Amino acid sequence: MPKLISLYIRQVAIGFALSAVFVGMLMYFNVANLWHLVSSSSEGAIALVVMWVLNGIVFAGVQFGIAIMRLKDDDQPGGGKRQMMPMMLAEPVPVKVDRRTPQQRQIRR
């Protein structure tokens, strides 16, 4: 199996495990009275599964994004001196401004 695919599967598994912990903590601490809503409804198990799956998708995406961003690019040589970029100096540029009013401009034409 390619390394990227195994990395993806591993990060998705971690994301769904984190989602299970998160949903479990939501139920344990009874956030927004979720425990009562889930336990007293006949569709509570479906709601719990939906909450786990949807949070799992989010957490898996974040896990995979973090894992990809932490990958190193070994093609670049390490260390060395920083190349100096040429700096442009800000120099004032003279701009001619016609201070006459529009009526004065029409008279001179």
Rank of each mutant, 00 (worst) to 15 (best):
Gly24Glu: 03
Gly24Met: 01
Met25Tyr: 05
Leu26Cys: 11
Leu26Ala: 05
Leu26Phe: 02
Met27Glu: 07
Met27Gly: 08
Met27Trp: 12
Tyr28Phe: 10
Tyr28Cys: 08
Phe29Pro: 01
Asn30Ala: 04
Val31Leu: 10
Val31Met: 04
Ala32Gln: 13
Ala32Val: 12
Ala32Asp: 12
Ala32Trp: 12
Ala32Cys: 10
Ala32Asn: 12
Asn33Gly: 10
Asn33Ser: 12
Asn33Lys: 10
Asn33Tyr: 09
Asn33Leu: 02
Asn33Trp: 06
Asn33Val: 01
Leu34Pro: 02
Leu34Phe: 04
Trp35Glu: 10
Trp35Ala: 14
Trp35Thr: 14
His36Tyr: 11
His36Ser: 12
His36Trp: 11
His36Glu: 13
His36Ile: 08
Leu37His: 08
Leu37Asp: 15
Val38Ala: 12
Ser39Pro: 00
Ser39Ala: 07
Ser39Gly: 05
Ser39Thr: 09
Ser39Glu: 09
Ser39Gln: 07
Ser40His: 10
Ser40Asp: 10
Ser41Lys: 02
Ser41Met: 04
Ser42Met: 03
Ser42Asn: 08
Ser42Leu: 03
Ser42Lys: 12
Glu43Pro: 05
Glu43Asp: 14
Gly44Gln: 02
Gly44Lys: 02
Ala45Lys: 11
Ala45Asn: 11
Ala47His: 06
Ala47Pro: 02
Ala47Met: 13
Leu48Met: 12
Leu48Pro: 00
Leu48Gln: 11
Leu48Phe: 14
Leu48Thr: 05
Val49Asn: 08
Val49Cys: 07
Val50Pro: 04
Val50Asp: 12
Val50Ala: 05
Val50His: 05
Val50Glu: 10
Val50Ile: 14
Met51Cys: 13
Trp52Leu: 10
Trp52Pro: 00
Trp52Ala: 08
Val53Ser: 00
Val53His: 05
Val53Gly: 06
Val53Asn: 07
Val53Cys: 06
Leu54Cys: 13
Leu54Gln: 08
Leu54Arg: 09
Leu54Trp: 07
Asn55Pro: 02
Asn55Gly: 03
Gly56Trp: 01
Gly56Gln: 01
Ile57Phe: 14
Ile57Cys: 12
Val58His: 11
Val58Ile: 15
Phe59Thr: 02
Phe59Ala: 03
Phe59Pro: 05
Phe59Gly: 01
Ala60Trp: 01
Ala60Cys: 06
Ala60Thr: 02
Ala60Met: 00
Gly61Tyr: 03
Gly61Trp: 02
Gly61Cys: 02
Val62Leu: 15
Val62Glu: 04
Val62Trp: 09
Gln63Leu: 06
Gln63Gly: 03
Gln63Arg: 04
Gln63Glu: 12
Phe64Ala: 02
Gly65Asn: 05
Ile66Gly: 04
Ile66Arg: 13
Ala67Met: 03
Ala67Ser: 15
Ala67Thr: 06
Ile68Cys: 13
Ile68Leu: 15
Ile68Asp: 03
Ile68Val: 15
Met69Pro: 04
Arg70Ile: 02
Arg70Met: 13
